[in-house]
């Protein structure tokens, strides 16, 4: 349908390819650094390919073990947090999608207001402290049970479903919660998939709340642990290598940093290709009614 002149098309195709490579280049560079020798890293020789390939940085990190504990913690935070999110988001969105419900508008306005005006960091912090939730994952999960934005996305998805489905079930005497479970949820998979992913990525990448509320070192999430390691890598991790003697000469903070980043990124990169299309759908769903 389009008549583009040849050079224009080729230039466009080429430039876009360059942009995509540019976006990926830092990841590839870090991957290469993580497998390179400290001499090559310090000499600034590493670009896209490992120089003097070795696994010392990874060996060091795995022997140290802290990053793996943190990864397990992140997994727990993500799985439980996302499950709570979805349960409570459905509990809010389904009743509020029923126009006949008395008091619906009051509640919707009440929820909308929380999107526009929040209590701020310090009052929230003192609330969580006074509930005794500091240093507990409940202090992460409970205050974030429902994202108002995601709730509105799900509500408008429910509103778009044909009413006849429910009416016939209601005539058969099905209760609301049965209708929700047997009829609504099975046909709402697109919105459920998208919101599950939004919540899950949010939990996996969560940094700030863990930084504030989690105090014990062995409970920290991957993101916070990673940040601490990146800050202290020279002192902490290199000292552990001193005991092993032989490794000492081949290790450099940059190598350890790069390897920690790779370990942290890997899980997301592994699931990304399979889930990517749900994200796009989710973004579009949200935009239909902001």
């Amino acid at each position: 349908m389009m008549q583009a002149s040849g050079w224009f098309r080729w230039l466009n195709t080429f430039l876009l390819g360059c942009f995509a490579c540019a976006a990926l280049f830092p990841f590839i560079n870090i991957l290469a650094v993580s497998f390179s020798s400290s001499r090559a890293i310090n000499a600034g020789e590493v670009s896209l390919w490992p120089i003097e390939f070795n696994l010392d940085a990874y060996r060091n990190l795995i022997a140290d073990g802290q990053l793996l504990v943190a990864m397990r913690n992140s997994l727990v935070i993500t799985l439980v947090g996302t499950a709570f999110n979805m349960l409570f988001t459905v509990l809010a969105a389904y009743p509020l999608s029923k126009r006949r419900l008395q008091g619906r508008n009051v509640m919707l306005m009440g929820i909308l207001f929380t999107m526009l005006f929040g209590g701020g960091l310090i009052p929230n912090f003192l609330l969580i402290s006074s509930l005794g939730l500091v240093n507990s994952y409940w202090g992460l999960w409970l205050p974030a049970l429902i994202s108002a934005y995601n709730m509105f996305v799900m509500k408008s998805f429910f509103e778009g479903l044909p009413e006849e489905l429910e009416e016939s079930a209601a005539i058969d005497g099905a209760k609301d919660w049965m209708i929700l479970w047997r009829i609504i949820l099975p046909i709402s998979m697109p919105v459920i998939a998208a919101l599950t992913l939004f919540y899950a990525v949010g939990w996996w990448n969560n940094y700030f709340n863990v930084l504030i509320y989690i105090k014990s070192t062995d409970k920290l999430s991957l993101t916070v642990k990673l940040y601490q390691m990146l800050q202290n890598v020279s002192s902490e991790l290199l000292r552990t290598t001193n005991g092993e003697g032989a490794l000492q000469t081949t290790i450099t903070p940059e190598g350890i940093r790069a390897a920690s980043i790779v370990i942290a990124v890997l899980p997301i990169l592994c699931v990304y290709p399979f889930l990517q299309k749900h994200f796009v759908k989710g973004v579009l769903m949200g935009s239909v009614k902001g």
């Binding site: 990448n205 940040y227 990304y272 994200f279």
Partner: peptide, 8 residues
């Protein structure tokens, strides 16, 4: 891809 990475 970068959008799905944490800022850390």
């Amino acid at each position: 891809i970068p959008h799905f990475m944490s800022w850390i």
